[in-house]
Amino acid sequence: MHHDHGIHLRAVCKTFRGRGADVEALRDMNLDCAPGSFTALIGPSGCGKSTAMRIALGLEDYDSGDVRIAGQPPAAATAAGVTGVAFQDAALLPWRTVARNIALPLEVLGRDPAKYGHEIAKLIELVGLKGYENSLPGQLSGGMRQRVSIARSLITGPEVLFMDEPFGALDQIRRRQMNVELQRIWLESESTALLVTHGIDEAVFLADYVVVMHANPGRVIDIIEIPFERPRRNELYSAPEFHALCDKVAMVLHGE
């Protein structure tokens, strides 16, 4: 199939079989993220957007269809270390320092963290946490912890980057700051990015394509292209064409 570092889901179906009621989380889900593109997956709670991402990461099985991450099945891609992931919560290990938390994926992949000292230092600087290398997560603010998890997602030099509402726990002001930073970090990494989010303005600000999903069953409704120049700046948030696109996404979201 594709031998690029994109994300491809073909006719993926997934049903959760619970007690009594079955939930059809995904029906014929198709998703194509071109190499180096930034895609935002948006939809109401229960539309299957997180499930789609967990399937792409090999954390969840799927009933039928085909999934290729950088040309490989999910389990092979993650075990090969071509993916990076940041979850809604920073999910840092509270007993590890910032530097050792960033090194966690290396240990899982069986690489020697000692050889990555330079990369870790560079990433800590990239996310603006220089001087906090040896701090414990408990000593950091919510925004700083989230930046550690972004740095952790980049340590393997991933070709494909997954983010599940990485700033969901932050307030609106902090979130906008982080979005600008995330864009800068992503542009430097040249990876293919998939962002799962609830926030319309976040999706429009960051993505090349906004994929809108609906629930019951979870499916893709529309794909909206976002043509703004990069790097996008804070002023974009007040631009009329930005708001026009946000309104368009909202209309598709609400099924009008």
Binding site: L59, A75, T78, A79, G81, F87, D89, A91, L92
Partner: peptide, 12 residues
């Protein structure tokens, strides 16, 4: 912490 476990599993 199931989230931390997810991070480990997400890297195979």
């Amino acid at each position: 912490d199931s989230r931390a476990a997810d991070v480990v599993r997400a890297y195979g």
